[in-house]
Design a protein around this nucleic acid. Structure first.
Ligand code: ZN
Ligand code: ZN
Ligand code: ZN
Ligand code: ZN
Length: 563
DNA sequence: AGTAACGTTCAC
DNA sequence: GTGAACGTTACT
């Protein structure tokens, strides 16, 4: 016991000695004076007392070579740090959350400044650039600061951290030519480095666009509550049942509220939608009425009605490894990033996104489950409508919508996707690409399908005499089928024909491994065509039962099905 | 519970 | 129009 005890003591002494050594050369007035925390002082004090006692008993540990000297230095340290300000010592709280510019370096303030809940109790303290009053700092923690420090953020509860921050900033100001790096490693320590961490960033160069800012914080700011507005796509169907002939279309009230995916947006953005009835019109009209943001917020829709698509894990990109080089990889913790972007590696974007196993039929509520597509019987396959986003088993759909005259049309590009008879009947206009799910849109873009990957409305667009007798419909279906097999005018064009050179450049510029993806897409198209050539799909459809187990066919819904 | 990453929101 | 951020969903 005693041995352990002394060993412990010795280690403590050692640590304290080495820790305090650098401080001896500074005066308390120096800006680099290291203030001790109350705990350090308390511990030092008790150690000091203990060593004194031991010495009086002449039983000081053998491992302490010069107990007297040690005792002296400890006492001196205690004296020197008598008046230390504990608020300037290490507090365990990170004081800097985002600093991109120091003294005009890297002035650009990047990243999102989320709109803060404007409640006065909000404790976030992004610093307002034009706030000059320091009173508010004490009143609320909305921390305005010296204007010089705008674009910098403090954490909450930062009255004392404010001092810390200023103390550190003073060092910068005092050493205009010297670049000192503050690295907040974790909430309990802030370490000052005299050189940049990675690479030898020349301080004199850092006024340029060097991405490595002088202060690096590995701990992001306390996360603000992000109020997400899920104007669920399922909003769409709420009025759907009401109107049979009218066209429901999501119109755009918020042209600036768009949907981006990190780095892979290809210029197509998803807009917030609101349902609107547009009787007998094909084209969406922007609503003249001003809808507020609240119109888009429907928290009742949260949760189960929100479903997403997931990667198939079987296509070629899905089987790749994280490249470790793209922005998303670099953001991942496993590659040393902080994990803010939370996106899949750009090199392994799925080209056949599927419904998740949790997706369920809107009629019978049965879940898809973890079975592969090829293991399901045809009537067990769930299909999501490309436009209304509803998910149904085909039998369930027809059981509940027997009044809907048209037949569904299936996508040959996106698994488990169709254009439901309701939407066909309603003549829902083709959604712009940016209204698709990012993962779906990406697939269409990377396979060079673009808008041609969208399912076309079969009848209504073509002829004015829409209402056809059932037999005629049957005929037309067959025609459609044929047209699909012998590609339609649209598909007839090679993908390159469909885009201007500029478009191609636009498309290709963002695609990481474009050639590979394009080859995959070609293979897929070939496969789809060959499949539908073999049999007469028309006669097979209803009894199909997806007996394609010998082919690895999980990813690809064959060409056009007619239900 | 922990991790991956999708979809929405927002700043620029 | 574009990309970062981040809440949320899906998977393990
Ligand atoms: Zn990557
Ligand atoms: Zn995939
Ligand atoms: Zn069902
Ligand atoms: Zn639909």
């Amino acid at each position: 016991m005693t041995i352990k005890y002394f060993l412990f003591l010795f280690i403590l002494f050692d640590i304290i000695q080495s820790y305090l050594k650098p401080c001896k050369t500074f005066e308390p007035s120096s800006t680099t004076w290291q203030h001790l925390t109350p705990y350090e002082k308390e511990g030092l004090h008790s150690l000091c007392t203990l060593l004194k006692k031991l010495k009086e008993k002449s039983s000081s540990p053998d491992d302490i070579v010069q107990p007297l000297v040690l005792l002296e230095s400890m006492e001196r340290l205690l004296n020197e740090h008598e008046s230390d300000n504990s608020t300037l010592s290490i507090t365990g709280h990170s004081i800097i959350h985002q600093i991109d510019s120091i003294q005009g370096l890297n002035n650009k303030n990047r990243g999102i400044k989320r709109k803060i809940n404007h409640s006065p109790t909000n404790s976030n303290c992004s610093i307002s650039p034009n706030a000059n009053s320091t009173k508010q700092l004490q009143q609320q923690q909305q921390s305005p600061m010296h204007p010089h420090y705008d674009q910098h953020y403090l954490h909450q509860n930062s009255h004392n951290q404010h001092h810390q921050f200023q103390a550190q900033m003073q060092q910068y100001q005092g050493n205009a030519s010297l670049t000192t790096n503050i690295v907040t490693l974790q909430p309990c320590s802030t370490i000052m480095l005299s050189q940049p961490l990675a690479g030898a960033t020349n301080p004199s160069q850092s006024s340029s666009s060097s991405p490595s800012s002088s202060i690096i914080n590995y701990y992001p700011q306390q996360q603000q509550q992000q109020q997400q507005h899920y104007a669920s796509m399922n909003n769409y169907h709420h009025s759907h049942h009401i109107q049979q002939n009218g066209v429901h279309y999501n119109h755009f009230n918020q042209p600036n509220h768009m949907n981006g995916t990190n780095q892979i947006s290809n210029g197509l953005h998803h807009q917030q939608s609101q349902q609107q009835q547009q009787p007998q019109q094909q084209l969406p009209l922007p609503s003249p009425t001003s809808a507020t943001n609240q119109n888009y917020t429907d928290k009742s829709i949260a949760g189960k009605d929100r479903h997403k698509r997931v990667r198939c894990k079987m296509c070629e990109p899905c089987t790749r490894d994280d490249c470790g080089e793209c922005v998303h990889c670099k953001d991942m913790p496993k590659f040393g990033g902080v994990g803010k972007m939370k996106q899949c590696c750009m090199n392994k974007q799925c080209i056949a996104p599927i419904l998740p196993s949790t997706a369920s039929c809107q009629v019978c509520s049965k879940k898809k489950g973890s079975r592969k597509l090829s293991q399901l019987k045809a009537e067990e396959v769930l299909y999501e409508c490309e436009r209304c986003m509803e998910i149904h088993h085909l039998p369930c759909f027809h059981n509940t919508h027997c009044d809907v005259p048209n037949e569904g049309v299936f996508s040959d590009d996106i698994p488990e996707t169709w254009l439901c008879p309701k939407c066909i009947t309603a003549g829902a206009p083709e959604p712009p690409l940016y209204k698709l799910r990012p993962i779906v849109r990406r697939t269409l873009v990377t396979t060079n399908k673009g808008k041609n990957g969208l399912i076309e409305l079969p009848y209504i667009i073509r002829s004015a005499n829409d209402v056809l007798p059932a037999s005629m419909q049957q005929q037309q279906q067959q025609q459609q089928q044929q047209q699909q097999q012998q590609p339609t005018t649209n598909e007839h064009c090679s993908a390159l024909d469909l885009y201007s050179t500029d478009d191609i450049n636009q498309l290709t510029s963002d695609i990481y491994d474009y050639d590979t993806i394009e080859n995959d897409a070609k293979k897929r198209r070939l496969f789809a065509v060959s499949y539908s050539d073999n049999d007469n799909p028309m006669s097979e459809q209803l009894t199909l039962n997806t007996n394609m187990d010998d082919v690895d066919n999980d990813l690809y819904v064959p060409q056009m099905f007619v239900v």
